[in-house]
């Protein structure tokens, strides 16, 4: 077992992990972080998407030991400080951009990263930004609308 120290959602966390432990398993099983989900075995679905040291990654393709000394943000960090929905989350709600909710945390992380990137939020660019996140419920139409609405509303 290796000891790791990672700031997760703003809080210093210490864990003992096996070398083989994937970041997603440590976040979920040891920290009860329910944002990152597991939807595939092969890095295709994006349900486990988090930000690590400011970069968007799929936490099923990172070892927990690799994150030692770093910072990880999961979807649990997105809400406003008073616990209310942030602008993007509210747009997801307003546009019915989620159904079962299983892909939602990953979608929100990717959308957050995309909106922060400064790239133009066109229909095509939004769809391209989402291609690493699979949703089996919504058909993506409303997710794209929600993200574009969030971009328009951003002051």
């Amino acid at each position: 077992m290796t000891e790791i120290n990672v700031i997760v959602d703003g809080k210093q966390e210490t864990g003992a992990v096996q070398d083989r432990t994937l970041l997603v398993h440590w976040l979920r099983d040891s920290l009860d972080k329910r944002g990152p989900k597991i939807g595939c075995d092969t890095g295709n679905c994006g349900a486990c998407t988090v930000r690590w040291d400011g970069q968007l990654v799929k936490s099923c393709m990172v070892l927990a030991v690799q994150a030692d000394g770093g910072t990880v943000e999961t979807a649990a960090s997105l809400s406003e400080e008073d616990g209310s929905l942030n602008r993007l989350q509210q747009c997801f709600k307003d546009h019915h951009a989620l159904q079962c909710g299983y892909c939602t945390s990953g979608m929100l992380m990717t959308a957050t990263d995309f909106l922060c990137s400064g790239e133009p939020v066109t229909e095509e660019a939004t769809r391209r930004a989402l291609k690493g996140n699979v949703c089996r419920c919504t058909g993506y139409h409303n997710i794209v609308r929600a993200i574009r609405a969030a971009a328009e509303e951003t002051p």
């Binding site: 968007l56 990654v57 799929k58 990172v62 990717t110 291609k131 690493g132 996140n133």
Partner: peptide
């Protein structure tokens, strides 16, 4: 290449 998450790694 691939997607924005994988491009970062």
């Amino acid at each position: 290449l691939v997607d924005r998450q994988v491009r970062n790694r």
